[in-house]
Structures are given as C-alpha cells and as structure tokens.
Amino acid sequence: MPSEPPAPAPLLSARGLHKSFGDNHVLRGVDLDIAPGTVHALIGPSGSGKTTVLRSLNGLESPDAGSLRIADLELDFARPLGRRERAALHRASAMVFQQHHLFPHLTVLGNVTVGPIRVQGRPKAEATADALALLERVGLREKADAYPSSLSGGQQQRVGIVRALALQPSMLLFDEPTSSLDPELVGEVLAVMTELAGEGWTMAVVTHELRFAREVADEVSFFDEGVVVERGAPERVFGDPRHERTKRFLRRLQGPFA
C-alpha cells in the first residue's frame, strides 16, 4: 500500500460553528481547517456567513455552538467565552478590516504601537523600532508621524496590515481588505498580502478578488447560506466547480461580459 506523507496538523481548526442573530441563522455548522503557512480564501455571496466565521476567529463574534483551535488555544463555544479566553483569541489572530478602522486620533506610528505597548506591555523603544521596520517594508516609513486622514485608502489599508503584523499573531485575518478601495489602489494592498503569503504567514481572507484567490490562495472555501458548500484548491473550485450554487455564484461574479 503506497503511503502518503502525513498532512501537517492544521494551525487552525474550527468545528460545527453555529451562530444566530435573532431569527437569522447565519452559521449552520461550519468546519474550517487551515494548515500552517497557507492562505485560505473564504468566498461566497454576501450574507453567506463568511465574514461571521472570520470575525469569530478573532473573538469579535461569539458563535452559539462549536469549537475552535488556533495553535495551542482551544475554545468551546457551548458556553460564553471568559475574559481570559477572549484575550487569548485576540492574541492568537489579528484582523485587517474592510474599512481599516485605524484610530484617527493617533499617528500612523501610534496606531501600530498602541497594541504592543499598551496591551502587550512591550518596551516602547523595542515596539517602536519594530513598527518602523514594518512600515519600511510596506513603503510607509516616512508616514510614521502622519495622521491616518492624510493617507490614501491604499496607504491606510497597508497601515491596517502593519498594525495587525505588529501584534505578532499566529495568523492573519483579512475581511474584504480591498472592497472599499478605489480600483487603482487595490493592487498595492494585494501586493503586500501576496508578499506576506510568500513569507509563510498563515492567512484567512474573505475576498471578492477571485484573481487574488486563484493566484495566492492554497485553498478556497465557498460559503452559501451558512455552510461551506464546496472547498478545495482554487484551480479546482474555480475551474471545475461541482455544486450548482458554486457555479451560479462564479457565473454571476464573472458577469455577462466575462
């Protein structure tokens, strides 16, 4: 019998996530595995539950049932998360928001260092040096003392990415990071994300950028009505979708002129 090499244990593993907002049952049993060093794209129509799953991975949403493991952290959502568990979850993953949610009253440097210094208690000099090095990498070193309002949308989102990186999480979460950007600014953000993927960051990305998903993601999950309908390598899911709902979604997204 041919023996396959054992797959690496997933860095993130979610099982049976359920979540309701009032009568709206948005997650109906979602499982998700993400291997270390891979990029997982979450795609699907709006309201399909993909963003709720992503937010649950950072404790911004609390599923009503299910379990989650990230690195050494194990959580059971059957009962509400305690303060310490929630803090550990915030520590394990870091989020880049659709509308960046930078702090407008802090400079770029302040946005990046407030977490490491005020929450994680790292020495100010060290956190500042790290932050400046990260800003240098995304080409924003000279904007360290600027306020977010003076930056372009693409620059703001790159600062959002640096803020997440500075927290030194086990993995990065991206919630439609390019959806509110002008088209000509999308590229600079995707370039940074592609670079991070190349460096071996584990990433979960909710996205409508199918080209990005196809080129950068290692695996794709297609969400619809609160469940993962189909998952697999991007070339398989996009090239040979097996479910009618996936086919319909891809057709609609590519549009009548594609």
Binding site: L60, A87, H90, F97, Q99, L102, G115, A164
Partner: peptide
Amino acid sequence: RGQWEAAAMIGMSRGQALGRIVLPQ
C-alpha cells in the same frame, strides 16, 4: 462601532478601549 472592534482586536479591554480610543475621539 469599528473603533471599539479595532480596539478589541488589538487586545484592549472595554475600559482601555473607552479611555484610549473612544473618549479622546
């Protein structure tokens, strides 16, 4: 609301989020 969420994301407690992020704004 996004400001509260970003503060939570970087690990702040509600009190810290209020004092450092929300009240100054």
